[in-house]
């Protein structure tokens, strides 16, 4: 009885989370040029348009460029912060770590507004570099936490062994620590890249009028009348996100990383 109820509850939630995407998928493969569901005739032309028209290709390119560099910045900050905390375990290290948690605690609109006036004053308003740096700094929390799990899993034995055998701190880092935390670094990188590609508000407020990213393009399209190309773009997004996470789950144990019980 309760088993049935439980299953019903979960299925309802799963339906609520998946149904919107099922309908969007239906719209994206429908040949009709107005938004309609269920599809009457199948066609891949909206996907073709997405991948051939420059007004979609440019935002796609912008989004990927921003994500690539922003994730590099975020991961480098997170790795350095974790290394310092691990080496020193002092107030200095903890303060840096706490600073990295900050962006997660604040509503994104405040961060976006701050970034907007900051880059306006710095004269980089409307430049892609501004979006890259802002994304890199504001999405630091996730890799910070993920990489800290990697450092927590380091055993003292290997570090001691490396030191006793005469390795310099740099050699220990490059040959022992980094290879051990590398899976966590990769996971952090992928997560930041995915989130950056998907982010709207900061990109919009920092340089949205000049550097159009994919979410900005979709948003503008939905706001001012849209065609099924938007549906295919949305689906493309969902596919890439799920595929990257699947690939990630092959490399690392996602459940353990997210804190599942060991069994």
């Amino acid at each position: 009885m309760t088993g049935m109820l439980k299953r019903l509850f979960l299925w309802t939630i799963a339906a609520g989370l998946i149904l919107p995407f099922a309908v969007v998928f239906g719209v994206s493969i429908n040949a009709e040029s107005n938004i309609a569901f269920p599809p009457t005739e199948f066609s891949g032309r909206w996907y073709m348009m997405l991948l051939t028209q420059s007004d979609w290709l440019i935002p796609i390119g912008n989004s990927f460029t921003i994500a690539f560099f922003a994730a590099l910045i975020a991961v480098s900050i997170a790795l350095a912060a974790n290394y310092v905390l691990w080496r020193l375990n002092s107030g200095f290290g903890r303060a840096i770590f706490a600073l990295g948690i900050g962006p997660f605690l604040l509503p994104p609109i405040i961060i976006a507004m701050g970034a907007s006036v900051f880059w306006a004053e710095a004269g980089w308003y409307g430049r892609m570099e501004a979006t890259i740096i802002s994304h890199g700094v504001f999405f630091v929390t996730l890799p910070l936490v993920v990489i800290s799990r990697g450092f927590a899993a380091l055993s003292d034995d290997v570090i001691d062994a490396s030191r006793i055998m005469g390795a310099t701190p740099w050699q220990t880092f490059a040959k022992v620590i980094f290879p051990l935390v590398a899976p966590y670094v990769v996971t952090g990188y992928v997560l930041v890249a995915i989130i950056s590609v998907n982010e709207y508000l900061i990109s919009y407020m920092v340089s949205g009028f000049a550097v159009e990213t994919l979410p900005i393009r979709i948003f503008n399209n939905v706001r001012y009348g849209y065609s099924p190309v938007v549906a295919s773009a949305a689906m493309g997004f969902a596919f890439i996100t799920v595929l990257s996470l699947l690939a990630l789950s092959m490399v690392t144990d996602l459940l353990k990383l997210l804190g599942a019980r060991r069994d």
């Binding site: 995915i194 998907n198 939905v222 549906a231 997004f237 969902a238």
Partner: peptide, 9 residues
């Protein structure tokens, strides 16, 4: 990870 924009759409 999915964009607010995509879920909203």
């Amino acid at each position: 990870c999915l964009s607010e924009v995509v879920i909203g759409f």
